[in-house]
């Protein structure tokens, strides 16, 4: 068991290192020079500067070093919690992200809770209801929810809840009212994905003999599904928690931009459009770390939650 846990942790670290390497390769092997781009954006012709000054500017961000040195510099920095310096803002990346991550975490948390409750309820109902058209309708809802583009859902909500009914603010992040529409927009997609997996899992579980046993000893159908069905159906659904977290993170890019919220998502959009490479690299690595960590935790918890599954065979 210990061997399995250690092996799994090492594997997660290896994946993260590889992800860092891929992201670094994508971002730093580019032909353009970020410093020159910043100067051009500020209206300064890089050619007009004395060559020493341009070089000093590059040296400040370590861009004059050979790529391999930059690679290890950043890797070492990441391991020590130093995410580098933002090229556009000239302050540490950790500070740039730190100032904005609270808003994104709050939004992600709300979206996660709503998706969990709505997705589970929908899957439960779709399995419980026996009236055929209703059942068919409920089972088709998540397929539609998952395929609606988020920019469109957001625009519909703004159009109806803000402009037509004037219930909620269309943008900004003041008060809980501003959280409602972004939360719905994200949760619609993540909740649908969750519901789809849960429905498939329910289908499988409700055919098991122990369900029949529970029914035979006199439990109502609703109780059987809640106590015996949901618990077992939730297990396979746990394996997609990492995917749902990843979806929430990527959704925040579109949703925060759309609702003009100051979070890591809108920061990503700004960093990409200003070619602030250290910020983009840090955000990509944050997302990858989140995904890998959640998958690691789920994998390690799984045998505890479901004793039928054992890792001994693999570890031995």
């Amino acid at each position: 068991m210990t061997r399995y846990v250690i092996g799994r942790i090492l594997q997660a670290i290896a994946v993260l290192w590889a992800a860092y390497t891929v992201a670094f390769a994508v971002l730093y092997l580019l032909p353009s020079n970020p410093v020159e781009l910043q100067l051009a954006a500020a209206g300064v012709d890089p050619g007009s500067l004395p060559p020493g000054q341009l070089h000093a500017e590059e040296a400040k961000f370590g861009l004059d070093q050979p790529l391999i040195v930059q690679y290890f510099d950043h890797l070492g920095g990441f391991l020590h919690g130093n995410l580098g310096t933002s090229i556009t803002q000239d302050i540490p990346v950790s500070q740039v992200i730190g100032g904005r991550i609270g808003s994104t975490l709050l939004l992600s948390l709300c979206a996660g809770v709503v998706a969990l409750i709505a997705g589970t309820t929908l899957a439960y109902l779709a399995t419980y209801v026996r009236v055929k058209p209703v059942r068919l309708f409920l089972s088709r809802v998540p397929a539609i929810g998952a395929s609606l583009p988020q920019f469109l859902t957001g625009l519909f909500l703004i159009q109806f809840l803000s402009f037509k009914l004037d219930w909620l603010p269309a943008s900004g992040q003041q008060g809980w009212q501003s959280l409602v529409m972004p939360t719905i927009t994200i949760a619609l997609v993540t909740g649908s994905v969750l519901a789809q997996v849960l429905m498939r899992s329910f289908d499988e579980v409700m055919r098991q003999p122990y369900i029949m046993t529970a029914r035979a000893k006199g439990l109502s159908r609703a109780a059987v599904q809640l106590k015996h069905g949901l618990r077992n159906a939730a297990l396979p659904a746990m394996t997609i928690l990492g995917v749902i977290a990843g979806l929430t993170v990527t959704s925040s890019v579109v949703v925060e931009t759309e609702f003009t919220r100051q979070g890591v998502g809108s920061l990503t959009q700004q960093a990409v459009s200003t070619q602030d490479i250290p910020v983009v690299l840090a955000i990509v690595m944050l997302a990858a770390t989140l995904f890998v960590t959640i998958n690691l935790i789920v994998d390690l918890l799984y045998p505890i939650l479901d004793p039928r599954i054992s890792h001994y065979a693999k570890a031995a």
């Binding site: 994508v26 730093y28 993170v249 955000i283």
Partner: peptide, 23 residues
């Protein structure tokens, strides 16, 4: 293992990283 690595980076963020460098 390469596939695992690519799956660890959320697709839209990976695309954004490429756009950062390609334009």
């Amino acid at each position: 293992r390469i596939v695992d690595t690519l799956l660890a980076i959320p697709a839209l963020l990976f695309a954004l990283a490429i756009i950062t460098s390609v334009g």
